[in-house]
Amino acid sequence: MNDVWSMVRGWFEDPQLRHGMSAVLIILIGFIAARVASRLVLRMFLKRLDAQQQMVSRRIVFYGIVGISFVAALREVGLDLSIFLGAAGIATIAMGFAAQTSASNIISGVFLLGERSFSVGDTIRTATVTGEVLSVDLLSVKLRTFDNLFVRVPNELLVKSEITNLSRFPIRRIDISLRIAYGEDLAHVRDVLMAVADANPRCLVDPKPFFATEDFGEFAVLLRFSTWTRREIFLETKNELQTAIQRAFRREGIEEPTQRRALEGREGAAPVLVRWEEASPEADPKEPS
């Protein structure tokens, strides 16, 4: 017992070991203080800041305090920080070559935060993925897709590519493409579609629903019907509308287009022989023997 005690006393009497332990203690206290302070800041400004600002302010406070405590710990062990400052220039050049991608991602992250094209909680669409923004980190943006997958997109990629923010504005337009047989009365179709939108309380009265003839296709008239709704219920309303349109078309007898071919023989041409055969059960190769 006495041996252990004298060993511990020996540690405290050794100045190098004492400074080392003080440095560890400073880092430990700094780490705890950083956690407490970042949570306090979050609580103080919870109502004033959005999710993105909360995340950034929490990190600034946390890493700021951790950084300061780290510098204080280095001083405690007697390291001259000016050496680090001198080495920083060399390290920057070295890093520039060795970690180009990481550096680019970090700088891109700063641009993304500054530009505020999106923030935590928004739903964004990139060239390859659509999802909710979970966090904007040092190197990448983390997304959760609608099928509950975790996707990491490097910041650099987002800065370079086109991003669509689906959550920026409170209302969105629903565009529904339709194909109608040539025999249908377009004015009647328009009235039916307008009645469908009118009957759905989720479709906004204003901006008004919009009906347009897009094109006269080979077998059908191509139409576009657009109506507006709140962004939170976009998909739900779109599904409701599509179901309601199908029902309304059936009720009103509006025909869906089918592919048709007309064969016309020239005058004086030889008659074309058409043979109509009905498949017999015996001839059906899929029929079990």
Partner: peptide, 20 residues
């Protein structure tokens, strides 16, 4: 009465959600 929603504003960016 089942509320019917609408948007009131100068544009689809600047305005408020309302009932019609």
């Amino acid at each position: 009465v089942l509320p019917v929603e609408t948007w009131f504003g100068a544009s689809t960016i600047d305005g408020v959600l309302a009932y019609a």
